[in-house]
Amino acid sequence: MSTLKKRLKNLQIVMGGSIVFVLVIMAIFAPLVAPLDPLAIDVPGRLSPPSAYHWLGTDALGRDVFSRLIFGTRISLMIGVLASFFGAVVGVTIGIISGYYGKWVDAVVMRFCDILLAFPGILLALGIITILGAGTFNTIIAVSIFAVPIFARIARGQAMQVKKAEYIDAIKTVGASDLRILTRHILPNILSPITVQMTLYVASAIVTAASLSFLGLGTQQPTPEWGTMLADGREFLLQAPHLVLYPGLSILITVLGINLLGDGLRDALRPRGR
């Protein structure tokens, strides 16, 4: 039973990993993969259904949907990965400091996290967009800020545990500095739960970013972005249902792939004998 379970988990990692791999390749080599220019307007050929030339049809301006989706992979993955990365760097830094030093530092940091967590993620992102204005880069910042308390809490909990270990006392006695203990001994110990969380956060960052674009407050036209494409396609549900079908499917497949990978990694990296 346990070997079967292990195999299924591996299968999950392989499936999720393959999806993610293909997407990353598509994003990097978008100009080579995309058959047409994603920005080329062709008004007479607008809203045409999928055909041999336009594999997934054209949008309201006659732009090739398939090519736009391929280029959209770039935007979505970039936002997801960068938001997760920035959120993790800031969150882990304040988390391990808070967990390691404890006392008032910890109290202040944790109340700060409580306040950030008091806002639903999308609302916090919307608030930040209000301050910074819409756009791809601002979306990254808006989405990464919500990640800060999530990573800070995980890092803090782990740091508090590791801090109590005997070997930390041992290196303290031989005179290691706090910085050295934090970066060389505590950080490596908490990397695996952080990696899992980073993977899973990429998925939710992609959805939040697409939601912002869907509301017209994220990435702006004419940049091909999945959420924006979906929002624009809403007007043409009757004439051109392909305009909402494929961008949504792209988000679903991407997020599913990342979730499969993250989920699988979580179980694979979990300490044995749970």
Partner: peptide, 22 residues
């Protein structure tokens, strides 16, 4: 349920409109 978890809700909403209303 993993598919449900990965489903962007704005897309689901539009698909429902497409099916049940349009």
């Amino acid at each position: 349920s993993l598919v449900g978890l990965s489903m962007p809700n704005f897309w689901l909403g539009i698909l429902l409109i497409q099916l049940f209303s349009v």
